[in-house]
C-alpha cells in the first residue's frame, strides 16, 4: 500500500517536471519511476517517516500556521538587526521538553523551531530539545510549548 502511493507520488512528480506526453518520454518516465522505486527499496528508505502519506492532508493546515509564525519571527529578528544602537540581543541556551511521542513529530517540531528565525535547535535527544534563542522573549515564548501543542493538534490528532 505504501509502495503504491509512493510510486503514484513519483509519477506525479515526473509528469509535473517533464510536461511532455510523447509515448517515448512517458515510457522513459515509467522506467525512471520504477528504477527510483527499486533503488529506494534497496536503500530501505520508504517508511512512515520519510513519506508520511497518511498525514499528507494535515500538513497544509499545520504549515499555514507555521508560515504565520515564521513571518512574525522574521520581523522580530529584522528589527533587532537593524536597530540603531548596539544589537539588542540576549542569547539564551534553553532546554525544553521534547513533548512529541513519535520521531516524526519530534523532527517536525525541531525543524519548525529552526525555521522560525531567532531559534535554532542544537540538539534533539530522547526527551528534550536544546535550543539556542536570540533573545529572552523568544526563549520564554518557546518554553510555553505552544508550537508543540499546535503540531499535536493539527497533525497527529485524529
Amino acid at each position: 500500500m505504501r509502495y503504491i502511493s509512493f510510486v503514484l507520488l513519483l509519477v506525479l512528480f515526473w509528469i509535473a517536471l517533464s510536461g511532455h506526453f510523447e509515448p517515448l518520454l512517458l515510457a522513459l518516465g515509467a522506467v525512471s519511476v520504477l528504477l527510483t522505486a527499486f533503488l529506494s527499496h534497496r536503500m530501505n528508505i520508504i517508511d512512515h517517516e520519510s513519506y508520511p502519506l497518511h498525514l499528507s492532508l494535515k500538513f497544509p493546515i499545520y504549515y499555514s500556521y507555521l508560515f504565520g509564525e515564521i513571518i512574525k519571527a522574521n520581523i522580530d529578528v529584522i528589527k533587532r538587526i537593524l536597530s540603531w544602537e548596539k544589537t539588542p540581543i540576549s542569547p539564551q541556551m534553553i532546554e525544553i521538553p521534547r513533548s512529541q511521542l513519535t520521531d516524526l513529530g519530534a523532527v517536525i517540531y525541531a525543524n519548525s523551531i529552526t525555521l522560525t528565525p531567532g531559534t535554532v535547535t542544537i540538539k534533539l535527544s530522547e526527551d528534550s530539545l536544546t535550543v539556542h534563542a536570540l533573545s529572552k522573549e523568544v526563549a520564554d515564548d518557546l518554553a510555553t510549548g505552544t508550537m508543540s501543542k499546535e503540531i499535536t493538534k493539527r497533525v497527529f490528532k485524529e
Partner: peptide, 13 residues
Amino acid sequence: VIAKFLIPLIILF
C-alpha cells in the same frame, strides 16, 4: 528523516 525524504526525489530528478 530529511535524507530519506530527499533521496528518491533526487534520483528521479
